[in-house]
């Protein structure tokens, strides 16, 4: 039986889930961060933890993708990712150029090889 569906029961479930299971982490972060000194060791550690988590999530999305991206062979995904990084560097650290370059490389590779 799926707990999803139309209507107010699902809406209430979503709001309760957000308030009980998810949003409290942001409030705890607010509380932990209130006395954090940007030049202190504690800040450096928390920043390293947050950065490693995001980097790990990036590689998970790339190595174990969902949906349509899973149909693209891993070598092409990683190749397009590397192309995006190269375009970013070549364009003088331009975020927009890197994202566009990587995406174009992925579509081109997908159409040519897959």
């Amino acid at each position: 039986m799926s707990a999803l569906g139309d209507g107010w029961t699902t809406a209430a479930l979503i709001v309760v889930m957000a308030l009980v299971a998810h949003e409290p982490w942001r409030w705890v972060g607010l509380w932990v961060g209130r006395d954090l000194d940007i030049d202190g060791e504690a800040f450096r550690w928390v920043r390293a933890v947050a950065t490693a988590m995001v980097a790990g999530l990036v590689m998970r999305l790339l190595v174990f993708p969902a949906g349509a991206l899973a149909d693209v062979p891993a070598a092409l995904r990683l190749g397009a990712f590397a192309a995006g990084l190269a375009v970013y560097a070549a364009a003088g650290r331009s975020l927009a150029a890197g994202v566009a370059g990587g995406s174009v490389a992925l579509v081109a590779a997908r159409l040519a090889f897959a």
Binding site: V28, G29, A50
Partner: peptide
């Protein structure tokens, strides 16, 4: 959602 904790903490300052 745990990852939101350190992310929020380092942005709050």
């Amino acid at each position: 959602g745990v990852r939101l904790l350190p992310m929020t903490a380092v942005l709050v300052p």
